[in-house]
Computed example of a mutant assay.
Amino acid sequence: MMDTIRNKLDDRGVSPVIGVILMVAITVILAAVIGSFVLGMGENVSEPAQASIGFEEKNSTAVTINHNGGDSLENATVNARVDGDSHTFSELNLDPGQSQTINASEFDTTPTFSDSEVEFIVTKDSQTVGTGTVEFSS
């Protein structure tokens, strides 16, 4: 009879302890979730720039880049690929509706545009914003 009474007394203490542990766990999880929303931990993700870009031959040594719409481009980079070689122009600043002409001499190494098919790639923050190919004549 004494064993039965002890078992009942031992079992009564288990349930409140488990309940307290569960309540503390739920409180900690809720605090973490609410804290992450309040502190804005998920807001640091930046979206890449989106723009409609057009390219056209200005003359045999220059290309005009047209910003047809989308996000403004500040300090964007233009890469020109000619015959497997890549050439970089690093200071493209365009708002929608604007255009900018870049001469071959303004690239880091001077490409030869005449009589070539040139692929242009505009990037901002390491994200490709626009690409195009221009067939240059002599």
Results as ranks from 00 to 15, higher is better:
32 A>I: 15
73 L>I: 13
34 I>P: 12
78 V>Q: 00
96 P>Y: 00
122 V>Q: 01
101 T>C: 01
26 I>T: 15
34 I>K: 11
100 Q>D: 05
124 K>D: 03
44 N>E: 12
44 N>I: 11
56 E>K: 13
73 L>D: 08
93 N>T: 15
109 T>W: 03
130 G>Y: 02
34 I>Y: 13
33 V>N: 09
65 I>K: 02
137 S>D: 15
54 G>Q: 12
17 V>N: 12
38 V>N: 08
121 I>Y: 11
97 G>W: 01
51 A>S: 15
123 T>Y: 02
31 A>G: 14
114 S>Q: 09
121 I>E: 12
131 T>S: 08
55 F>A: 05
29 I>T: 14
124 K>E: 03
54 G>S: 15
15 S>P: 01
113 F>E: 02
57 E>D: 07
19 G>Y: 09
124 K>S: 10
128 T>D: 06
52 S>Y: 13
107 F>D: 09
58 K>E: 12
85 D>F: 06
45 V>P: 03
63 V>Y: 09
102 I>T: 02
113 F>Q: 05
48 P>E: 04
101 T>M: 03
39 L>Y: 15
45 V>E: 08
23 M>Q: 07
2 M>P: 08
129 V>A: 07
120 F>M: 06
41 M>K: 11
83 D>M: 00
73 L>S: 10
82 V>N: 06
48 P>T: 04
86 S>G: 03
73 L>F: 05
13 G>V: 14
73 L>M: 12
82 V>M: 05
